[in-house]
């Protein structure tokens, strides 16, 4: 993946596409029951496993990976800070809070309804974070992610407390630790909305790039700054809420992937977007495959794998950047 980032043009696209396809093939093959590609067309049972479980799982990993990486990119644009992402700055936690509250007061709500409520709370939580972040001095860029992490921690404590008091702690795990093992046909399709959000980002890419230059420059260039901020917030909140509802919180994708891509391609949203989406999809799928293999036949949740891989990757990014001065 990283090698593909350095190249540009059609060759890089072909290489990245081939890598992603290879990952998909591996993902379709890895699982408790043996599946061989040759028998897909002849064997009904094999076909069923693939269509009902493996393919949905693989698609869910790709969609949430691409969506979260893009959500991270947009969040960094909104906060004008490279080191924030929805999963660590309170967006995902507010979404989980929304789901928890819906489960408490309206247990019969449909998944779509829960997503809607979660999107709304995520929107509120992220707006508060951005209001704080925009108040911090731009001379101390490290304060913004720090405030985000603590803010996310406070919301997380809220979440644990409410769940504790209402005996919902075991459900909480399902929303806070991202996992694909429960993904089956019929239970992931909402994630296609994340793909629609990515398309929206692509459509407004130039406007987002202008937004990243700050309020004064944006207004000077005739951009409706507040409106664009709202669109960005909407994208981040909806993608986060979707992934929390369907698979749970997956940390660090939104952080590591856009930062890596930025190194090679810069922050022109339109230019970076394909690499970020493909990179995010590839990273999450890789971590999911790893989680399936490390302790085969048991599974390790993708959120845990990414917590390790992502945190280590982020530290390397941080320290490298610092040593550059």
């Amino acid at each position: 993946m990283i090698a593909a980032l350095k190249l540009s043009g059609p060759r890089a696209g072909i290489l990245a596409g081939a890598l992603l396809l290879a990952l998909v093939a591996v993902s379709l093959n890895v699982g408790v029951s043996e599946v061989s590609f040759r028998s897909v067309w002849s064997d009904v049972e094999t076909r069923q496993i693939i269509m009902a479980s493996r393919l949905p799982r693989t698609l869910a990993a790709l969609l949430s990976g691409a969506g979260l990486a893009i959500a991270g990119l947009v969040m960094q644009t909104l906060a004008r800070n490279r080191f924030v992402e929805p999963a660590t700055a309170g967006t995902s936690q507010s979404a989980a809070l929304g789901i928890l509250v819906t489960t408490l007061f309206w247990p019969s709500a449909s998944v779509a309804m829960k997503t809607l409520v979660a999107s709304a709370t995520a929107l509120g939580g992220t707006s508060i974070f951005l209001a704080i972040a925009h108040r911090l001095p731009p001379t101390q860029p490290y304060l913004v992610p720090l405030v985000g992490l603590i803010y996310g921690g406070v919301l997380g404590a809220c979440l644990t407390f409410v769940a504790w008091q209402t005996d919902l702690l075991q459900y909480l795990e399902a929303w806070t630790v991202g996992e694909f093992s429960g993904v089956l046909r019929g239970r992931y399709e909402l994630l296609w909305v994340a793909a629609a959000m990515v398309a929206l980002v692509w459509w407004t890419a130039d406007r987002l790039t202008v937004l990243s230059l700050g309020r004064d420059v944006s207004i000077g260039l005739g951009l409706d700054y507040d409106r664009m901020l709202q669109i960005g917030l909407l994208v981040v909140s909806v993608i986060s809420a979707l992934t929390v509802v369907v698979v749970g919180i997956i940390p660090f994708v939104g952080l590591v992937v856009p930062n890596l891509v930025s190194r090679f391609k810069g922050d022109n949203v339109g230019l970076a977007l394909p690499s970020v989406a493909v990179g995010g999809a590839g990273l999450v799928l890789t971590c999911d495959i790893l989680g399936r293999l490390v302790r085969y036949p048991y599974e390790i949740p993708v959120g845990t794998v990414l917590g390790v891989v992502g945190a280590a990757g982020f530290l390397i990014l941080l320290l490298r950047k610092n040593s550059h001065g």
Binding site: T77, R207, G214
Partner: peptide, 28 residues
């Protein structure tokens, strides 16, 4: 308008940034 010291935090190339000056005319 050009304000004093607008902090450009984004990693953009010179050509890309100057081209964004045309944004009001082409909207992307």
């Amino acid at each position: 308008v050009l304000r004093q010291d607008p902090a450009i935090g984004s990693r953009l190339r010179v050509g890309e940034l100057v081209a964004l000056g045309r944004f009001p005319h082409h909207r992307g």
